[in-house]
């Protein structure tokens, strides 16, 4: 499973209040919430980002609340994967459950903003500019199965012999 795209780079401790402030949580339409994605750091982020782009961040990405809207707005904007030095655990599992690939990579800071990066999810391999290859933590088979199905909803449908949505 291959993901590739332009990198938007962020720092350490990007918390869920920065990704989606609490005041927008009551909005029912994901599209509406997504307009405010990353508003706490870059108010114009939602208008700049394109489908297939990637986020690269420092440590503890997604710390704070359990709001699934945090990975959901990133997926809604077309983000193909999030690479970070480390993730907060609820963000990490929420991302997997909605089918947004997440790769932990201790050397993620070597990737620059604006560059083009390829990720092989099954191997956890990240190829950056000048053929720099970084080894991220490979998702275990259990998590890969969820991602490959497109998320936990799709996987449960498969397991229950229901047609895809």
């Amino acid at each position: 499973m291959l993901v590739q795209g332009r990198v938007w780079k962020f720092g350490d401790d990007i918390n869920t209040d920065l990704i989606v402030p609490g005041k927008y949580l009551f909005l029912t339409e994901l599209k509406e919430v997504a307009k405010h994605a990353m508003e706490g750091i870059d108010p114009s982020f939602a208008t700049k980002v394109s489908t297939g782009d990637l986020i690269v961040a420092g440590s503890n990405f997604g710390c704070g609340s359990s709001r699934e809207l945090a990975p959901a707005v990133l997926k809604e904007l077309g983000i193909g994967a999030v690479i970070a030095v480390s993730f907060a655990r609820i963000f990490f599992r929420n991302a997997i459950n909605i089918g947004l690939p997440v790769i932990e990579c201790p050397q993620a800071s070597m990737i620059s903003d604006g560059e083009y990066v390829k990720v092989d999810l099954a191997l956890g391999l990240i190829t950056a500019k000048d053929n720099l290859v970084l080894q991220g933590l490979r998702l275990n088979d259990f998590m890969l199965d969820i991602i490959q199905a497109g998320g936990l909803v799709a996987l449960k449908r498969q397991q229950r012999n229901l047609p895809p949505l």
């Binding site: 359990s66 709001r67 699934e68 609820i90 599992r93 929420n94 909605i98 998320g151 936990l152």
Partner: peptide
Amino acid sequence: AGVGTTDMAA
């Protein structure tokens, strides 16, 4: 442990 809404759906 805290989780998100898709986890809770399952």
